[in-house]
Amino acid sequence: MKNAIALIAFSLLPLSAQDVKFPESFDKLAAKAKETVNINLDGSMLQLAGNFLSGQKSGEATVKQLAAGLKGLYVRSFEFAEDGQYTDADVAPIRSQLAGAKGWSKIVDVAEKNEHTEVYARSEADKIVGMAVIAAESRELTVVYVDGPIDLARLSKLVNLDLDVAAPAKK
């Protein structure tokens, strides 16, 4: 019943600068996780980051170009010590927001044993201007929301690049 209320509440939330809102239940997941990544970067923070990204180093230059047009970048990622630390009900509010929001559609839905990955995209005039990824595994849950036009081809280059990235926040 509580989950149903949460579902309705979140689906009725007006969409604002951050179109996708993370549910309050994620705070409880963070308390249970052995590792958490919590990133909230709005337009001004992305611009600030851009000033510190090198245009010379190839990896950072790619990231700098990717981040240049974005309005927001939000990540919640939880790694748990054991299975069963979260349920579908924790993720349902986000799915509900994306399902009901104008311009959003699910473009990928891959489900295997204990793994379920969904990719949503928001389009405007045939361009992707927003993306959300929900990657649910038995001991890891990751939700990424990218607000703004994203170059997927350029993004894919990051996989093989050696980026000097600080370790994610650990508990």
């Binding site: 990424v144 894919s156 990051l158 996989v159 980026l163 600080a166």
Partner: peptide, 19 residues
Amino acid sequence: AKAQVLTALRITAEKLEYT
């Protein structure tokens, strides 16, 4: 902020690649 952008986009790229 730079570190967070690098992390966030790396995670996004990895998840998409995995998918």
